[in-house]
Nucleic acid binder design. Structure first.
Length: 356
DNA sequence: TATACGTGGAA
DNA sequence: TTTCCAAGTAT
């Protein structure tokens, strides 16, 4: 068989597999439906960045119900969107999501650009997302490379170069096997394959539709591809958080700066997070320390947050910008997971305190 | 090119 | 328990 035929066989095999086994996902137009809605495709792609399908599901449902189109999202207030995103992580995505929605609503007349280049210029839309939306929502031929595609392609061609150095090689190999027609389906098929068969661990090579096309399956350990550079050790940091409660059952919440960890999110006042954080509370009060620090693991460090709890007078205002939030409504504040856990620990401590 | 940036589930 | 990993982007 000629090389070009072999290349075409890969796309043909994969699309045949997809026609039968495509996962049914909320952001995929059902068979026979009208063309995909670019808003829903874009929203799902942003939510899915570094995030599992299972985690995205409820958030996608919530967002599309509350904000059915890009104009509705663009018109929403920042705090509402940030709170709705709380718990999903990587909060820069939520800030960029709003910026992008407003750019589309204002600068593009409410319509998403339909080219990779136009999409790429939007906030929070990188090489992957631009290619994915161009292909899936607009039927463009685009080379879509995410972690699934990287893994599948590295195995198909047994690419021995370690990541991240292998990226250019993987991209051009993906370009070669991407068909002119159905590039969107091809991309989604690659991702389905990577998520269900060509998985990172214990790939199911025995039932893989590309088994006959795969170089790695002929090696001793197909799962070893792609080769990856060793990871750095994760440092451990300490921090303090303060739960300041008023007699009328309100707690003091701050909004974190846009840049940095948990940027733009509501939070408890807290210290810097490092080897030896300053444990000086934001105000003078009778502080109780919650016995067990809240342990939390982020992407590049782990944190033990010591939570402190105090009741203050009704007329007290802690320093800095913030707001009094009803404790009974703390679930609606949109606290990121770390601070949701800290709040939980503080409230537990508060009940103990009340019994004394 | 390397680093910052969340979270929860699986092995 | 620990480690890895999931539809990446911005700087």
């Amino acid at each position: 068989m000629r090389v070009e035929d072999n290349i075409k066989k890969i796309a043909a095999d994969l699309l045949a597999y997809y026609d039968v086994h495509a996962r049914k996902l909320p952001w995929r137009a059902p068979p026979g439906a009208n063309a995909a809605d670019p808003y829903r495709i874009w929203l799902s792609e942003v939510m899915l960045q570094q995030t599992t399908v299972a985690a995205v599901g409820p958030y996608f449902a919530k967002f599309t119900k509350r904000w059915p189109d890009v104009a509705a999202l663009a018109a929403e207030e920042d705090a509402e969107v940030m709170a709705a995103w709380a718990g999903l992580g990587y909060y820069a995505r939520a800030r960029n999501l709003l910026a992008c929605a407003r750019a589309v609503a204002d600068a593009h007349g409410g319509t998403f650009p339909d080219t990779e280049e136009g999409l790429r210029a939007l906030p929070g839309v990188g090489a992957y997302t631009a290619a994915a939306v161009a292909a899936i929502a607009f039927g463009r031929r685009a080379v879509v490379v995410d972690a699934n595609v990287e893994r599948v392609v590295a195995r198909l061609f047994a690419i021995a170069t370690p990541l991240p150095a292998a990226r250019p090689e993987i991209r051009s190999a993906t370009d070669v096997i991407t068909p002119d027609l159905r590039a969107g389906d091809f991309a989604q098929a690659m991702m389905d394959l990577g998520a269900t068969i060509c998985t990172a661990r214990n790939p199911a090579c025995g039932i893989c539709p590309l088994r006959d096309d795969c170089a790695a399956v002929l090696t001793a350990d197909p799962a070893a591809f792609p080769i990856k550079a060793a990871k750095k050790a994760k440092p451990h940091r300490l921090g303090h958080g303060w739960w300041i409660e008023r007699p009328d059952g309100h707690v003091w919440l701050v909004r974190r700066p846009d840049k940095g960890m948990l940027g733009g999110m509501r939070a408890l006042p807290s210290s810097e997070w490092n080897d030896a954080p300053d444990g000086t509370p934001p105000l003078v009060a009778r502080w109780r320390r919650v016995a067990e620090p809240v342990a939390h693991v982020f992407t590049h460090f782990s944190l033990a947050l010591t939570v402190h709890h105090a009741h203050v007078g009704q007329d007290v205002t802690p320093p800095g910008d913030g707001e009094w939030w009803p404790v009974a409504e703390i679930g609606r504040a949109g606290l990121p997971t770390l601070f949701a856990r800290a709040a939980e620990a503080a409230m537990k401590e508060g009940k103990k305190d009340a019994r004394l």
